[in-house]
Each structure stands twice: as C-alpha cells, then as structure tokens.
Nucleic acid binder design. Structure first.
Lengths: 359, 359
DNA sequence: ACAAAGACAGAAAGCGCTTTCTATCGCTCG
DNA sequence: CGAGCGATAGAAAGCGCTTTCTGTCTTTGT
C-alpha cells in the first residue's frame, strides 16, 4: 500500500541501503546521490515505516510517560513541558520526531507494571515515571526489577517527582526529585509564624512517597515548635485519596468532629480546592476563620478567592529536564539525582488565626 | 537480549506459528498445547516485540490523539476519558493493551500535519483529532488529504469536537461534535433574559471552528432580540488566543476603552478566568457590576468565587465515544456524525446588570 | 467400514528496514 | 608507478512476528 524504501531506491536509481543511509545519516553519501534520493522521497511522499525501523534498529522513537491522571493539572503541565522539550531537537540536530506515549495508572501499582511491560514490548526509546510512588515493598521490588530490565536493555528511565530506585549501578536510570519536604516545612513554618497551633492536615493516601515527604516536612516544622504540637498533628491528620472530593469529604468529616483547627493544609492543590469548598459551604471564612494551603501551585491557585497559599513545584523545569535526560541530551549528575527546589507562595488564603476564644 | 517467540516455542516444544496462534487467538489450538505454551510464556517472562508484530500485521496497537495542549483541562479530561475507555476491552474480550500517543499541536496547523505523518509512519491503529479545527482552506485541504490517506489505509479516524471533513465516502472517518452553537445561544439568551444588552465577547483566535460556532450561536441569540444588538456585538468582540492571559489582557484593553458592557462572555473557561482576574483587579464586582460567563464547564468553574456560569461540554462522554469509534467497538451513525448536547450551567457569576445609569 | 471433513500443527515466505561485509574507484604516498 | 587507503555504493543477512499453504490425524456421515 504505502511507499516503501525499496520503491524510493528504485525511483532514485540507488540501492535500498543508500536510501536508508541518506535518511539516517552517519554514513558518507555523495552529494549528488543524496539529492537524488531526497527528491525521490519528496516525489513519492515516502513515510518510513516506524515499526520496521524499530524492529531492525531494536529501539523505537517512542517515549513512554507514566502518570496518575492526565486530567490532573500536575501531570498535565509536566507532560506538556516534557513534550515540548521532546519535539524540536537540540540545535544542530534535525528534528527527531519522537512521540510520547502517555499511560494513566490511576495510582494503581498493577497498572504501573502493566504499562511498563507494554512499553518494554514497544521497545520504547525512553520511559519517564512521574508523580509519587506507591511505597509498598512488594510493588517497589517488582518495579525495581522492571525498571532495571528496561534500563539494561538500553532504555533510559527517568523517575520524575518520586524517590530513586535501587537499580544496579551503571544503568541509565536517573531521578528528578522535588524538595517536597523542604516546601512543606516552610509552609508549616509560615503557618506557625502566623500564630496557628492547631493545623489540620488532609494527607493523600498512605504509602505515597510525596505524601510521606510532605507530611514529614510538616511534622518537622511542628516539632521544632514543641513536642505537643507534633502530637496534636497526628490527631488532625486525615488520610484521603487525591481528588477534589476527597478534600471536601475530609473537611466535612473534620468539621463534624468540631472545629478544632485554625488552618488546613492539603496534600495538593486539587484537594485544597475541595477543602475550600467544604469550608465555604459551612459559612466559614477564609482566611479570617480558617487558613487553607495547598501544594504544587497549579494554575487554579490564583483563581480561587482568596488565592491559595501553596508551595510551588517546578513542573515545567522538571518536564524539560526529564526530557533531556530521557533523550540523553543531558548527562545526569554522578549520583543520578537532581533535586529541584520548591518555593513557598504566600497568597490570600492564609492569615493569622482568629483572636479571642478558640475552641 | 529479550526472549523471543522462537525461544518460547522451543521451550514449549512447538513451532513458532503455534505460539503466535496461542497469543493471538483466532485459530484452533488444542487445550494441552495451549497450556504448554502459556506456561512457557510465563516461565520465560516473554514480552512480545510490538514493532515486529506491527510490521508483520501492518498495524500497531497505538492510538494517536492530537490535542492543542495537554495541560489545558479541556484536553486533559478528554484524553483521560479516552484512555480509560481504551484500556479494558469490551466484556468477553481479553485486554488489548492499546497505548495512547498524545501529540500536542499548540494550535499550529503544520504541527497537526507533522504529527499525522508520524502517526501514519507508526501505522497507528487509530487516530483521534480533538478540539477546534483551524479553518484555513489550505490547511483543511492538506488535512483532508492526510486523513483520507490514513483512513484508506484502514486506520479509523475520529474527529472529536471539530467539524467533519470532506473525505470520500466509505472511509472509516467519523465525527463526534458538540452543540457549541446551541450552547452559546442559550448562554446569550440567559444573559439577555437577565437584562444585559451590552455584552462583550472575548472570542478565541479567528479561524478556529469552535470559536466560529460559539460566536454564531451568540449572535443568533442577539439577533433575535433586535438588529442593533447584534451590531453592537461586533464592536464588543475581541479576538485573542486561548490562554488565561488572553482573557486578562483582552479585558484590560476593553476596560481601557471605557466600561461599555455589563457582561463578558469568554471563548472558554480558561479565558474566562483571565477575564475574572482582570475585572477583580480593577475592583469590579462579579456579578453585581459585570457578569462573566465561560464555556466548557471545566473543574475550575466551581472553584472561582463566584462560581462561573458556563456551558457544559460533555468531554467524558465524547472521550468514551471517540474511544469506541476508533477501536470500531461501536458503529458510527450512517452520516458518520454524532452531535453531543451541551448544557447551560447557571452559577453565581451572572446576574442582572446594575440598575441606574449605564455608561 | 471408507471417504470426506474437520481439527490441529509445522514449514516457510515475507513485512520494510538497518547494518555488516564486500566491492569499486580514484587518488595519494614513497 | 604500484601498493594502499578513503570515499561510496551494493548485496545480503537478518530483526521477531504473522500468515498462508501444506500436511497429518481424528472424527463423522452413510
């Protein structure tokens, strides 16, 4: 059906090998021959058969990206940045035409492994795993095995926004991490400085690396302000999923037990919007009555009223870096880990707690 | 390196052909043989080489999805729904393992064509083009040619959220459209009923099908309320891009010319958030001073204060349907076009215009 | 009981490309 | 002036899978 390499070769009066070389470079081809081939390609509207090429070359120009949910701003922005960086090649190089295969895991470890298998089958030219990792021994082991297998087959793997994996040294596996802990620490300090002492924490699911890090930073800040605080914290921490509705439900549950807090910190901005909705619905003013803070600094933060105090996670930078690492356009540091800084973004949703009697 | 079909065959003591048949079905294989092969696959951890398979079968299990911007909620939600529907196979069928290749066009016609070429090269098993189409004759012609070529090669193509293309009959090309015009009409009527007469319109880029449709619906409603209104409308219509900042900038520009309107309708919700920000920044109250409305009903609509009046576009339904069409799990209607209804969502951002002197 | 009809398994021919391995040819070197 | 080398181009061997095309064996029908 479609035009083949052989037809182009015939049309140009050269051998298939020569056409392949003109197309791929890395081998000397005389100017005249090259021109003739290029014209033939043009005239016939030749489009190379990627599967055939991948079969012969044992690697494709597909890059796999695993995300929890494409519709979530966090992943959407990350993927968008990654793609943009994947498209146009480094200056001097011709455009490569790498395609991005986006796989949604919905947070399920099994889906993560299954997609990795599919990508392995595709002989993906690179794989990026994004977002928090489910820290469950069994899964971590399985994942490490899979990643090591992929990497030992020559596929660069980048872990983006999650902790490094214990793969054998020398494999092309690198990590782009966020300083979640530091961000959460600074956020908690901000609240403490404002005078908050009873801070509710709507954490994500237990066993998610980002949640663990963020909570750890939060608790570290509380601990510095007194042992008692840190203990209270546990009682005010709620485990949830990572949807907006989770923030809403958790907040309602919290309120049902009496309003024993003056601030709520959410696992991420999406959850925070749910918190805000629940609070507002009860006529609780933000930040006069209760302060609210999120995490990630998604675009929605500046559209809520008041704008949401949060911690900025450099998603675009991470996507760009991950793209460069997965295409080997940039070398990872010796230990393979690059930690990107996070930044406290103070906005209108946090203020000193109400004065006077506190519940 | 990796385990091959031949190795599995040897391990199971059968021929490669038999293994292939066990894996793909559609050919009788005796129970015992099947079990033996399955065990061998299991024991060797065999993962089929997708490129080889695609080469031999002349089609891959990759589904291409063209979007303007993955980070935009509209596309994020659409892609998420599409993927979910692509994953688990119809009941009775085994999981197929289709992968989604997401291509960002950033609204550039050239990028659209380029990605289509890449997908053609991949021998994609299906392609979905989402979002408004750039209606420029030259591009439409080129696009139609490309789509026809793809479809005549047996690749199902689904146009989702954009107008049908004039491809030869009989090709597997179908369309899932939204009733943008109707939605915009009802939205404008809603504003007119509230008493608004001077309605600013922050349209998207000229030449985008969705923009055209929405504006047409808007104007149709105005026209029904008097010729003069429709004429004023033209003066209050601003062409912009589709970012949040576009809404912000356009609104500031509009305000600089004097506040000659009591309502602003935006091309979509993202733009609307920009409008809201610009308005609020000038101390203009929503909806007391000026009403604002968006389009799409993205999640952000309920998180703004006040919540945004908008038109709901059934993105999830569209994604699901597109997935079914592109996998041929569902037959398109005879004319190939399915139009999904839109729904006016009245929320807090629209109210009657301020009484008293109007500028 | 015998031919025709399945049911099942293997051999082998590609699918369209990449990549050695060879084969020329025209010069440069000594 | 002949050996030798770099620059080019072609032949051919796969890459790992699917899919006819054949070739057994069992089953059925009568």
């Amino acid at each position: 059906m479609a035009v083949t390499l052989a037809e182009v070769a015939a049309h140009a009066g050269v051998s298939p090998a020569t056409v392949s070389r003109v197309l791929n470079g890395g081998y000397p081809v005389a100017g005249g021959t090259r021109t003739r081939v290029e014209r033939a390609v043009e005239e016939l509207g030749y489009v190379a058969n990627a599967p055939a090429r991948a079969l012969a070359a044992a690697t494709s120009d597909l890059v796999g990206v695993l995300v929890r949910d494409v519709a979530d701003g966090f992943f959407g922005i990350l993927v968008a940045a990654l793609q943009r960086a994947l498209g146009p090649e480094a200056p001097g190089q011709a455009g490569s035409g790498r395609l991005t295969v986006v796989c949604a895991t919905e947070g399920a470890p099994a889906a993560e492994l299954a997609h990795l298998t599919l990508l392995e089958g595709q002989r993906a030219g690179g794989v990026v795993l994004t977002g928090g990792a489910v820290e469950e021994v069994e899964h971590t082991v399985a994942l490490t095995t899979r990643v090591a297998r992929l990497a030992s087959g020559g596929t660069p793997v980048v872990l983006c926004g999650r902790p490094p994996l214990a793969v054998p040294a020398g494999l092309p596996v690198s990590t782009v991490a966020f300083d979640d802990r530091g961000g959460a620490f600074r956020l908690a300090e901000h609240l403490l400085t404002l005078g908050h002492r009873r801070i509710a924490y709507v954490a994500g699911p237990a066993g998610l690396s980002t949640g663990r890090e963020r909570l750890a930073g939060h608790r570290a800040a509380l601990a510095r302000h007194g042992r008692a605080l840190a203990e209270d914290c546990a009682a005010l921490t709620v485990r949830t999923s990572l949807e907006r509705s989770a923030g809403y439900d958790a907040t309602r549950a919290l309120l049902r037990r009496g309003r024993s807090f003056t601030a709520v910190v959410a696992a991420d901005d999406t959850v925070a919007t749910g918190v805000v909705a629940a609070l507002r619905e009860q006529g609780i003013r933000i930040p006069e009555d209760v302060s609210v803070a999120g995490f990630d600094d998604l675009p929605v933060c500046v559209d809520t009223a008041p704008a949401l105090t949060t911690v900025r996670v450099p998603l675009r930078e991470a996507g760009l870096l991950a793209a460069h690492l997965v295409t080997r356009r940039r070398q990872p540091p010796p230990d393979g880990i690059t930690t990107l800084p996070t930044q406290l973004m103070v906005r209108g949703s946090t203020a000193p707690p109400p004065t006077g009697r506190q519940p």
